[in-house]
């Protein structure tokens, strides 16, 4: 049990899909955050698309997913 033997039947390809799905779920959760929340700390008149931390997060997750897809 401690060695996760019960998951020995899962192939490397399936395991890779699990990781990619995890990044998808995290990305979805990030997108669900209210926009006001991710801008908190910046005055309303100074908010621009490049300050949107959702976009930053999605960019980082996309690069991460492409690394795992490639390797």
């Amino acid at each position: 049990m401690f060695n996760f033997d019960w998951l020995s039947g899962v192939s490397q390809e399936t395991a890779k899909m699990i990781f990619l799905s995890l990044y998808g779920v995290i990305g979805l959760l990030v997108l669900l955050l209210p926009t006001d929340y991710v801008y908190e700390g910046i005055a309303k008149e100074d908010r621009h698309w490049w300050n949107n931390l959702k976009l930053w997060s999605i960019a980082v997750l996309s690069i991460l997913a492409s690394i795992y897809y490639h390797f």
Partner: peptide, 15 residues
């Protein structure tokens, strides 16, 4: 310096 910078520091660090 503010909450946005606190959050952004972690995300920038992750990149």
């Amino acid at each position: 310096k503010n909450e946005w910078h606190a959050k952004a520091s972690m995300i920038f660090g992750s990149a």
